[in-house]
Computed example of a mutant assay.
Amino acid sequence: MKKICILLAFLVIALSCKKDNKPDSIETVKEKEQTLITSFDHTKIKKHLYTLASDEMEGRATGTPGIEKAAQYIENEFGKIGLNFYNNLTSYRQNFEYDKVKMFNIIGVLEGRSKKNEYVIISAHYDHLKMKKEGKDRIYNGANDDASGVTGVIALAEFFKTRNNNERSIIFICFTAEEIGLIGSKYFVKDIDASNFVAGINLEMIGKEAKFGPRTAWLTGFEKSNFGQLIQQNLEGSGYKLYPDPYKNYSLFFRSDNALFARLGIPAHTFSTTSIDLDPDYHKVTDEPETCNINALTEAIKAVAIGISSIVNGKDTPTRIK
């Protein structure tokens, strides 16, 4: 009788383990993803935005004390998150010189598990404009352009690090000197092996609601690869919608840091929410943190996390840009 009881106990344990090891359904996986996405800290996102766009940063123009302060802030956040350094760098800075001006991209890496030599880029530019020589308000704070994007990069780095199940490596880059000619991204791509780069999503001006309404965004160069379609598929059921770039006359696909990757065939696109044709604060001193919508910013960051999940996980690979 004792032997029978022992056998029954083992049988119960075995059946229990078998049940626990049963693969989750697609619906269950999506539910778990949605639960993880709610972990974005609204307060922390506001802190990043308000710090990077504060008067103390003096507009974050390239080569100024203000951009040095911004760089240090981003480096500190990457350090707290626990990102690795890029390639052979000994810090998060990729230093270089252009026209006798010392510049630096800020780069952190989260190594992938099974496909660590395949890279997904999440980027934004952290520079903005020089202060005005005179006037009551001389500082171009650059809250939406592009402290909002940098906030997204930091928040996504923390999210994916906490999640810690990315199969592909993720490179988080805050580029310098975008405003004066995409100089930081030009320097970064000059020595890379493009075949190792699977995709790039560049966050540009994501601090306001899009023309399509709440919980919507648009993607530049939508027709140039199927990256946007993959994001749309992953966003199904989330309540967030992604649209093709509605501002074709502005040639925005070629005007931000994604362009340097796209020229190498990498499916790299810019994700944005701002009505660029109607925004009263674009490249104005009025681009202050208070003009941004923290809820819209948070929702945009969540949408990116969901939208690129299947690419980061190694399930999907976007088509190359010809």
Rank of each mutant, 00 (worst) to 15 (best):
K208Q: 07
F197R: 02
C292S: 14
A300G: 06
S238T: 10
Y250F: 15
A262G: 15
I266A: 08
N293I: 05
C292V: 08
L203P: 00
K248E: 14
S195A: 12
N234Y: 03
A296K: 13
H283M: 05
E288W: 05
E290H: 01
I276Q: 09
Y247I: 11
G239F: 00
F253T: 06
I308M: 10
A305H: 02
A296V: 09
L219Y: 03
K302P: 02
L297D: 06
L297H: 06
R263P: 04
A194V: 02
V198C: 03
S256V: 03
Q229G: 05
K211T: 15
F227C: 04
A305M: 03
G200E: 05
Y240E: 04
E209K: 15
Q232A: 14
L297I: 08
A262M: 09
P246Q: 11
I192K: 01
N249V: 09
N202G: 00
S251F: 12
F271R: 07
I201P: 00
K284D: 11
G228T: 05
P244G: 04
H269R: 13
N202F: 00
T270Y: 07
L235Y: 05
M205A: 15
A268R: 11
E204V: 10
Y240T: 03
E236I: 10
F222S: 13
T220G: 07
G239H: 02
A210S: 15
G307A: 11
I276Y: 12
D277S: 14
I276S: 04
K224I: 11
N196F: 01
L297P: 06
Y250C: 11
L260Q: 15
T291V: 15
C292H: 07
N258Q: 15
F227G: 01
D191G: 02
D245Y: 13
T220K: 04
F261A: 08
F253S: 13
L203M: 09
K241A: 08
L278G: 05
Y243R: 04
T274D: 15
D279G: 04
L242D: 03
T216F: 06
G237V: 01
D245F: 11
W218N: 13
I192V: 05
N293E: 07
G200M: 07
S272L: 07
A303D: 12
K248G: 09
Y282K: 00
G237C: 00
T270I: 02
Q233P: 00
N249T: 14
G213N: 03
P244A: 09
L242F: 01
A300L: 06
P267K: 08
E236N: 09
K241G: 02
K302Y: 08
V198K: 05
L252I: 14
D287R: 03
R215C: 08
T291E: 12
I266W: 08
D191S: 14
A305Y: 02
L230C: 00
G265V: 06
F227V: 01
F261E: 08
F253Q: 14
D257F: 06
I301C: 14
L278C: 12
Y247F: 15
V285G: 02
K248T: 14
D245E: 12
A296Q: 13
I192G: 03
L252Q: 12
L297A: 09
